[in-house]
Amino acid sequence: MQPRHLPLAALLIAAAACTPAAPTDGIDPEGKTFDAVGPEEVVTLVGTEPFWALKVEGGEGLWTTPENQPGTRFAVTRFAGNGGMGFSGTLDGKPLAATLTPGECSDGMSDRRFPFVATIALEGTTLQGCGYTTAQPFTGDPAP
């Protein structure tokens, strides 16, 4: 049987969303699947330098950038690991993998504080950012 090689995006998600953590960080030491974000919650991931946003609602993602403000819609699959959750899909023919993990996050450009850390893997590029949901919003000025 030939060894199976996973794409980099799959490996990043596995490492970020499924790595067991110490019991002191709020993650179930017995490996309970991450359930802090309900399936009905809209999830938004944002980043700066370069600016980007991914909004996930149900099985659809909306990717926006300053150059594409209306955004591009694409199908996503959601999955949960031990320490967070992930989304995967194909954006303009390129694999996209996103992770959302608990942790205080700052976008570095405003006084906003976000409840999640976000990572996007897109065509060999890794983007770092922050995330929030409809039930777990960011705090700070809504329009800085």
Rank of each mutant, 00 (worst) to 15 (best):
Q2D: 11
R4G: 04
R4S: 05
R4T: 11
L6V: 03
L11Y: 00
A14D: 14
C18K: 07
T19H: 14
A21E: 02
T24W: 06
D25G: 05
G26K: 03
I27V: 14
E30P: 00
G31M: 14
K32R: 15
K32W: 07
D35E: 09
A36L: 15
E40M: 10
E41S: 11
V42S: 08
V46W: 07
T48E: 05
E49S: 15
P50D: 01
A53H: 08
A53G: 09
A53L: 10
L54M: 14
K55G: 05
E57W: 01
E57N: 02
G59Y: 06
G59E: 09
G61N: 07
L62G: 00
L62S: 11
T65I: 11
E67C: 03
E67A: 13
E67L: 03
Q69M: 08
Q69C: 04
A75P: 15
T77Y: 00
F79R: 07
A80W: 00
G81Q: 08
G83R: 02
M85H: 06
D92T: 13
G93R: 12
L96V: 15
L96W: 03
T99I: 04
T101A: 05
T101M: 03
P102Y: 11
D107M: 10
G108V: 09
M109L: 15
S110P: 05
S110M: 05
D111I: 13
R112Q: 09
F114M: 04
F114R: 01
P115V: 12
F116P: 01
T119Q: 12
I120P: 10
I120S: 04
I120V: 13
A121I: 03
L122R: 03
T125Q: 12
Q128C: 02
G129W: 00
G129V: 00
C130Y: 12
G131P: 13
Y132H: 15
F138T: 02
